[in-house]
Amino acid sequence: MVVPRFWRERRHRYSLIGTRCPVCGTVYFPPRNVCPKCGRKSLGKMEEFQLSGKGKIYSYTIVHQNVLGYKYQKPYIMAIIETPEGPKITAQIVDIEPEEVHIGMPVRAVFRRITEDGKAGIIQYGYKFVPDWEELEK
């Protein structure tokens, strides 16, 4: 793959920037150019929206058979995270043992290396989530 494929998504993947529909107020992540609820009325009006990076685990799995580029990470935890702003996000959960993960667990986004295109290829970065110990200890 060439650099632009990853470069063009960097702001969304590095900083969790999605979009918000000014007509109905719904927040989307990943970003959308059209709001599925408002259709053409939202066209050209979608605004950038920064997520807080906080969330709770909505569902998860432990992956034992990987897609390409994840061989040395397995077994790893994949989850769908519910954010307080509305969107759900698919990401890895790290810095925790698989048996400690549960639905409802508070987590927060961190900036991590995601994978790389072979030994000489592009190193790709983005978000993973870790347990939100501040919330967990409340």
Binding site: Q65, V67, Y70, M78, T90, Q92, I114, G126, Y127, K128
Partner: peptide, 18 residues
């Protein structure tokens, strides 16, 4: 989904878990 490590069975598994 896939970029972050989700396989197709991983997505099925998250449906099952939920």
């Amino acid at each position: 989904e896939v970029f972050f490590g989700a396989t197709f069975p991983a997505l099925g598994a998250m449906m099952a878990r939920r």
